[in-house]
């Protein structure tokens, strides 16, 4: 057998075997990985529309909305994705709002790459052990119109106002800006449905 033929045969066999092993393994693991993603999404949806028992997926153009409802199909609220830039990378937030889209029910930050120990306090603040999620909890029942504002180093006094995290003003401000932009954009699309 010539060397060239041998090279081709060996590489072909290696590639076929590799492909075969991987497709079998993928067939076995793919459902599990999908299931993780699905449960994560569902958990997030039920977290941002607190009383929902079921949800319906609604696609309007490129946007995807998840309408949360009770078992008797009473519509409780809508969840959608809000994305934008944080201090050093993308922050993506799942926002739950009432059906009129004027009040936030709750938010959940799905992904962020903020500075560990500082900007990450938007998700988890160990310096406040009683309520480590105090930052996102502030958005529960928050009036989102005309827009959300933030204050520093003092308790919020007006409706639609939240308190920024000391030392992580930029991350706090980013969350507020991302929400304001996304709510404005999605309100137009969703209320016209």
């Amino acid at each position: 057998m010539s060397n060239t033929a041998r090279m081709i045969i060996v590489l072909t066999i290696a590639a076929i075997l590799s492909g075969a092993i991987l497709s079998v393994y993928n067939f076995y693991t793919y459902p599990k990985i999908q299931a993780h993603r699905q449960t994560e999404l569902e958990k997030a949806i039920f977290e941002v529309i607190p009383d929902a028992e079921e949800y319906k997926k609604l696609e309007l153009g490129e946007k995807v909305y998840y309408v949360g409802c009770t078992k008797k199909e009473k519509e409780l609220g809508v969840a959608f994705l809000a994305e934008g830039n944080g201090f050093q990378g993308k922050i993506s937030i799942l926002v739950g709002m009432n059906m009129d889209m004027d009040t936030i029910l709750a938010i959940k930050i799905l992904e962020q790459v903020e500075t560990p120990g500082l900007g990450t306090k938007i998700v988890d603040d160990p310096s406040n052990p009683e309520d480590r999620k105090w930052f996102t909890n502030q958005f529960k029942g928050l009036r989102a119109l005309p827009e959300i504002t933030y204050v520093k180093n003092e308790k919020p006094s007006k409706p639609g106002q939240i308190q920024a995290i000391t030392g992580a003003t930029i991350s706090s401000r980013s969350v507020v800006e991302i929400l304001n932009n996304a709510i404005k954009e999605n309100r137009e699309i969703f209320l016209k449905r």
Binding site: I21, L22, N26, H36
Partner: peptide, 17 residues
């Protein structure tokens, strides 16, 4: 090819379990 196969297996295993 060999390394990539095993790496993909490791990666999928971590993602699944």
């Amino acid at each position: 090819i060999v390394i990539a196969t095993f790496v993909t297996v490791a990666d999928r295993t971590l993602a699944a379990f």
